[in-house]
Design a protein around this nucleic acid. Structure first.
Length: 320
RNA sequence: GGCCGGAUGGCAGAGUGGCUAUGCAGAGGACUGCAAAUCCUCGUACAGCGGUUCGAUUCCGCUUCCGGCCU
């Protein structure tokens, strides 16, 4: 027997804003299932460093998509979306409200707005694009792209390696520019949702970021990184580039002091949080099937009480 | 007390008689399949007061402060 509403709950916000705690409180109150929407918490090898929920939290509500992918693999917005849709369906099947939480804006958007139906680009094609970029350099590569996708070449900066390569591999593999694929799709709205956005004051959040990293150090972050490094994986893999991994790797290699490594990791966290603010302020989907509430504060014991009425109401009134 | 060397944007650190680096921090922004990623943009700062000069952050003097050495 399914839950009366087919809407889902989304708790978003920058790192260390307390979204996991809020999501947990909401899931407990509604009998929901927490589904991870964080690009780094999906990796099995990263637990302490990504502030993954611990045993105590896991016992309070079902958690899905945490630590389900090996660090040797690269997740992606598309792959995550497929996994998330399956988990959402499974939760509903079980009569549980899906509560999505995580700081990866692109993932949330892919879910809430849909993704252009670009067919998967074959690995050979991707490798070819990367090799060509490495060979030509940014500006010449951009010009090479202009021959096939003038619009993208015009829009992207020569230094924007990642997007340049993506645009190139898509035209190369499909014969159609990325923007073309997007147009074909239209404004495909995803599932209806009640969205809670946590945007605490900057100084307050930065302090929380700093304190949390110190806690991670005590909880064994260096050992976690040591174990990851021992696998000898490609340093270009996403998991290898998570905040704290390069910094602690430098510490373990004796290239820096503990104090410097911690400071660098804290700073990387703050920068990441800053980018998340910009994203959540301007890029979060807005459409008819979404009801959004923005809270300018961090998680606190009183927050769930404050926000639950909105969520309950939204779940009942959202058109499905 | 004397001699010498410094004083540059939040920090580090170049430099020049007119066009006022750079790095880091910080801020704003972009963002459709590696997103904890990948990028873009943003700062007349030259210790104070006089003087020289068409023009001083750059030259000179004094003051203050900071270092070093000497007594």
């Amino acid at each position: 027997m399914a839950h009366p509403s087919s809407a889902l709950v989304v708790v978003a916000g920058p790192t260390a804003s307390g979204k996991s705690a809020l999501a947990l409180a909401i899931a407990e109150a509604l009998g929901g299932t927490i589904i991870n929407a964080d690009s780094m918490q999906v990796y099995r090898d990263l637990s302490v460093l990504t502030a993954r929920p611990g045993a105590a939290e896991l016992a309070r509500a079902p958690h899905r998509l945490y630590g389900v992918i090996d660090a040797a693999e690269a997740c992606s917005a598309g792959r995550w979306r497929t996994l998330a849709l399956a988990e959402i369906a499974a939760a509903r099947e079980a009569g549980s409200v899906p509560v999505l939480t995580g700081g990866s804006g692109l993932y949330l958007r892919a879910l809430l707005e849909g993704l252009a139906p670009v067919p998967p680009v074959p690995a050979v094609e991707r490798e070819a694009a990367r090799a060509l970029h490495a060979h030509l350099g940014g500006e010449a590569f951009r010009q090479a792209l202009a021959a096939r996708d003038p619009e993208a070449a015009q829009r992207l900066a020569a230094g924007d390696t990642q997007r340049l390569i993506r645009a190139y591999e898509v035209v190369a593999a499909t014969g159609r520019p990325l923007a073309d694929w997007r147009r074909g799709q239209g404004p495909a709205a995803g599932p209806p949702a009640a969205v809670v956005l946590l945007l605490p004051a900057r100084a307050e959040l930065y302090a929380a970021c700093d304190a949390r990293f110190l806690r991670m150090m005590e909880q064994g972050a260096p050992a976690e990184v040591a174990a990851l490094l021992a696998r000898g994986l490609d340093p270009a893999l996403p998991a290898m580039r998570a905040v704290g991994v390069p910094e602690l790797a430098a510490l373990l290699a004796g290239r820096t002091s503990q104090e410097a490594a911690v400071a660098a990791a804290q700073q990387a966290t703050r920068r990441y949080a800053k980018r998340q603010y910009t994203w959540f302020r301007h890029q979060m989907p807005e459409h008819g099937a979404l009801q959004k509430r923005v809270l300018a504060e961090q998680f606190s014991e009183s927050l769930p009480v404050k926000i639950l009425p909105f969520i309950r109401r939204a779940l009942l009134t959202i058109k499905t």
